[in-house]
Design a protein around this nucleic acid. Sequence first.
RNA 1: GCCCCCAUCGUCUAGCGGCCCAGGACGGAGCCCUCUCAAGGCUCAAACAGGGGUUCGAGUCCCCUUGGGGGCACCA
Length: 492
Amino acid sequence: MKPARTRMAPSPTGRFHLGSARTALFDYLLARKTGGQFILRIEDTDQKRFVPGAEEEIIRSLDWLGLTPDESPVHGGPYGPYRQTERREIYQYYANLLVEKGHAYPCFCSPERLEKSRQEQQARKVERVKYDGLCRGIDPDEAARRVRAGEKHVIRFKMPQDGVTIAHDHLRGDIVTENKYIDDYVLLKSDGLPTYHLAAMVDDHEMKITHVLRGSEWLPTFPLHVNIVRAFGWEEPVWIHLSVFLKPSGKGKMSKREAAQAIKDGYSIFVDDMKDLGYIPEGVLNWIALMGWGVPEDDVMTLDQMIERFSIDSLTPSPAAVNFQKLDHFNGTHIRLLTTEDLSARIKPYFAAAGLEVRDETLLKVTPLIRERLVTLDDCLAFAAFFFKEDVEPNPEELIAKGLDAKQSAEVARRVYQILEAQPDLSHERCEPPLRAYVEESGLSANQVFGILRVAATGQKVSPPLFESLEIIGKEKVLKRLQRAIEMLERM
RNA sequence: GCCCCCAUCGUCUAGCGGCCCAGGACGGAGCCCUCUCAAGGCUCAAACAGGGGUUCGAGUCCCCUUGGGGGCACCA
């Protein structure tokens, strides 16, 4: 396959969400797979909806995911500028070119007239409400004169009124649309900036984009776009319309409401939130890759493995419901795939954020103990914070073993204390045999004895493996914590 | 209302006319392992939306119905 040039072209009007991330992923995979380039282009032609900081969030999110573009507003590139507001002359040139070729025309209708016309049509219940074509019939010379005179106008595409347009989508095949259903869309707005329809087609051509991956919300105007490209006489890219993401229930698309719900549930559909929630790029990427991409088997993949296996032929056209449980699964899976050094470095900030001082030497010993227990990185606190605290605060009730009372539990704790105190150090090898022997002779269960020790030493009922943990906590602290537990039990 | 797209287990999907009494993954249930929680291993339940065609043969091709989604802006 020839090197593909792909592009992701978001508008800086909101947050960078899962859907954008998936499009970017597939763009990136196709580019890497074929030895081509992945481009980021900012479609900021709607100054009314511009959101400050949105572009930064897009770039930050892509970067975090590891999908850094080869060409972009910040990285530059040979086909820039990559921000559409910086390309307005280009669009004006091409819009005029289309007028000259007879494929477009200036329209002088006011927004008010347009609105009135629309309402009239709605009242008449016409088949398809669209521009009534008033300016379409103006003599070109007359129109040119009015434009030169400075009359306010837009440029509209002169859509063929008869026949059909056959547009080819790589996933859906030929899409046949009757031309009468397609409006004379505005290409150039009265403020001199282009609409998406013109800008995207011009840029994709100018930037030599070979494959256009975009959301299925573009399907209705797909035939329009194809007509524009053909009017210019340009070669068409391969068109791929990806489906939208549905909310977890599968009933309805992702909405503002749903985004808020996800956050309430401890999840998010915004990539920029993922890091704080403890997700790692590997997990997120693997998760979104599987929505809309039919990977036959072995669905645990790193980015490099995805590149190796990617093919636009195995993309799927049907809408996919977002499943956060699957995100958790893949996140945990990829956490387990990390090396001890890597994982340690990634969880360290969470301890720091909790105000805990963490020595690398200790952390490196702790990490292997909690690795397979982490679903998200921030889970490290629940499992391992006690390693880095001076004292722990066990719940007295939890110090009492199942089937025993406080007094009996205190007795067990005292015996355990004696056993551990007698050891030169609390290495796993030293502690386990005598404690097991005690379990034997006492007639208690390992669960009861180790349970008391666990809560006393770690302050919690659930912890990493006990003996390995004791070794890391150290004899001095373990005995101190045990002593405290004994006192708590005696006071009950 | 009109136009367009989609349709296999609850969810993501494999299947591109016979290899499918439909395979994998998440989730669920059970068992094993076990000092807790995980991880891991094994097993089980779970789907071709409905109806017509085409064909010797249909989950796979065609049509209709139904359901879902998207779109009807000087927004993208």
